[in-house]
């Protein structure tokens, strides 16, 4: 009896100790995960803020060795690129998402759902290669359009899946109310269901746009880059991300410094984007 009790209490304490160790380990892991986040933000802000001035937002880049200058062309370029990407990607994503939620309860629907998931895992550089063969080769030169097409392909999976999920969240009773009023199904879907789900869909669009704004790889050989002012979508165009890449890998100290500033501006731009979107999509009524 004694022996059994002893053995029992030993396993009991062992279990207790293992329990505490494992709990502590998982908590420590959560903290460790946060460290790089803090470090990256700390460096981007502290290094980037040194060269953050009005010139950065109003002037063009200067040639090597000449100090100062800004990246106004890259800021505008990034906006144009995500604009083109959105103009193509948003409608395709919303329509496909609507199809999946409204009519996609069949084999083809499952296939498309599966393929959008797979598409979301395709490396962005591969999408860049496709945009190169699709747009750059026929046009025979790099262009903002090619970059926009690449970004659109990257946005489609995010927007499609969020649209589908958000439409599914709209209570069936609204749909029934619409149909019972003698409103055709398509109008019920567009004017009632989509409108009700709009806030969630907008979040998906925002996510797609802000990811696109941070993409570099698919732009390297589509939009290429441009040291001058250009808003022509059929010509190469500058972007913040490509500048960060070029300036950080260049052997010039002042370029390196500006790369940090560009990174800070990019993060600010993405945050602003999310803020503006939140204001636009804020519903008229509290719910």
């Amino acid at each position: 009896m004694e022996v059994i009790n002893k053995a029992k209490s030993f396993t009991y304490y062992r279990r207790k100790v293992v329990n505490i160790i494992m709990l502590f380990f998982s908590f420590a892991a959560a903290i460790i995960t946060i460290i790089p986040l803090i470090l990256i933000f700390y460096y981007t802000i502290s290094q980037g803020i040194a060269h953050l001035n009005v010139d950065f937002f109003t002037k063009l880049p200067t040639p090597v060795g000449e100090p100062g200058g800004g990246m106004v062309n890259a800021i505008v370029g990034t906006l144009i690129l995500i604009g083109i990407g959105g103009a193509i990607g948003i409608p395709v994503g919303i329509m496909t998402g609507t199809y999946l939620s409204e009519f996609g309860k069949n084999k083809f629907g499952s296939l498309v759902r599966f393929l959008t998931d797979v598409l979301s895992g395709v490396p962005s550089i591969v999408v860049g290669v496709v945009a190169y063969t699709l747009v750059v080769i026929p046009m025979k030169h790099f262009s903002a359009l090619a970059g926009g097409v690449a970004l659109a392909i990257l946005m489609i999976p995010t927007i499609t899946r969020t649209t589908e999920e958000m439409i599914k969240l709209v209570p069936h009773s609204y749909r029934e109310a619409g149909l019972a009023l003698g409103i055709p199904k398509w109008k019920t879907t567009v004017m009632i269901v989509l409108k009700t789900a709009w806030k969630g869909i907008a979040t998906g669009i925002l996510l797609g746009l802000s990811r696109a704004a941070g993409e570099t790889a698919p732009l390297l050989f589509t939009a290429l880059g441009n040291r001058f002012w250009s808003t022509n979508i059929f010509q190469p165009i500058a972007s913040l991300t490509v500048y960060i890449y070029e300036y950080s890998t260049a052997p010039f100290k002042d370029w390196n410094d500006q790369a940090w500033t560009a990174a800070l501006v990019l993060i600010i731009l993405i945050s602003l984007l999310s803020l503006i979107f939140r204001i636009i999509t804020r519903s008229k009524y509290k719910t």
Partner: peptide, 27 residues
């Protein structure tokens, strides 16, 4: 309207399906 709407959304779904196939072919 219902038919057009369904076909239209279907068209985009087919487009996304073709996109993946097309990417492989293009490369």
């Amino acid at each position: 309207g219902d038919i057009i709407f369904e076909r239209l959304t279907l068209l985009f779904a087919v487009l996304v399906f073709l996109l993946v196939v097309f990417m492989a072919w293009e490369m």
